[in-house]
């Protein structure tokens, strides 16, 4: 037993081995292999349809591989293990998922109920639930919206409620799916800086995004998903962002025509730091 605990302590947080998955014949993952250590900040980069969201859902035990294996702290993450009450409760307490579509995540009658949903379902005592709800609502500046219906809020407010509903569980691992998509710059930067604070508090942050401008702020390691639904490359964000050939291959940047002095020509183009060109 002690051996097993020691083994689990050394095991990576997530170990994804040759995972395949397809939606009704359309491949989403075709042999993805990667690992994430505890306390890491990882960005999962990839174009639309490269399999980022599918991979995140697998890391949250919401989808399961057709082939291949996913491990969580040395134990297999599968339908069978998640059916075990003790494993499932512990896993749900440790791993939180902020969905890209905030609407799908908000289903309670009021913001307060929404934030309380997770802690209540994990069986925390009432006073602890109350304390967490109040604190989380306070951190995210949702005090004035507490009794409002979540589906009636603005896009930015919905995102903050969705985040609050996950943070109230106090997970060790946070999975973000396109956290800044469709948000105004102020809300985006608020989310990025909150993710920084959470990482400093020791949490593992895994963010799937195609917004290259935030990668340097949210990750210490970037993994690039290729259009062939496997890992196309990885490294420190600066190195990955400098690898134009890799980004072009993964369809994260694109060639597009420009006119300079009446001459039209093509060169790689991205939005890493605004809209700049190397000449």
């Amino acid at each position: 037993m002690a051996d097993m605990a020691a083994k689990n302590a050394d095991a990576p947080l997530f170990l994804v081995e040759d995972v395949h998955f397809s939606y009704e014949g359309a491949p989403a993952l075709a042999g993805a292999t990667l690992s994430v250590e505890r306390g890491e900040r990882v960005a999962l980069l990839g174009a639309n349809g490269s399999g980022k969201s599918t991979l995140l859902k697998m890391l949250d035990g919401l989808l399961f591989p057709d082939r291949g294996r996913i491990g969580f702290m040395g134990q297999e993450l599968s339908e069978a293990t998640l059916r075990l009450d003790s494993f499932s409760r512990e896993f749900r307490r440790r791993v939180g998922f902020v969905f890209q579509n905030a609407d799908a995540q908000l289903f309670s009658p009021t913001v307060r109920d929404e934030v309380a949903f997770g802690p209540l379902h994990l069986g925390l005592p009432d006073d602890e639930v109350e304390r967490r709800v109040e604190d989380t609502i306070h951190i995210l500046g949702l005090g004035h919206l507490k009794e409002r219906a979540p589906y009636h809020l603005s896009g930015g407010e919905k995102k903050r409620v969705a985040l609050a509903s996950v943070l109230a569980i106090n997970p060790d691992v946070l999975l973000f799916d396109e956290p800044t998509a469709g948000l105004d710059p102020k809300t985006s930067s608020f989310l990025v800086s909150l993710a920084g604070d959470l990482h400093e508090a020791g949490k593992t942050i895994i963010t799937a995004t195609q917004d290259l401008s935030i990668v340097g702020d949210i990750a210490d390691r970037a993994l690039v998903m290729g259009e062939d639904h496997r890992l196309a490359g990885e490294g420190p964000p600066a190195a990955v962002l400098a690898d134009r050939e890799l980004l072009l291959r993964a369809n994260l940047i694109h060639d597009h025509p420009h006119r300079h002095g009446g001459v039209e020509h093509y060169h790689p183009h991205s939005h890493v730091e605004g809209h700049e060109h190397g000449h």
Partner: peptide
């Protein structure tokens, strides 16, 4: 969408049993 909503509920510990604060 219903699949996504259900996934979001499961992700936050829902196991089919409604739980309320009071």
């Amino acid at each position: 969408l219903s699949e996504e909503v259900y996934a979001a509920m499961v992700s936050r510990g829902f196991d089919g049993e409604p739980v309320t604060a009071s």
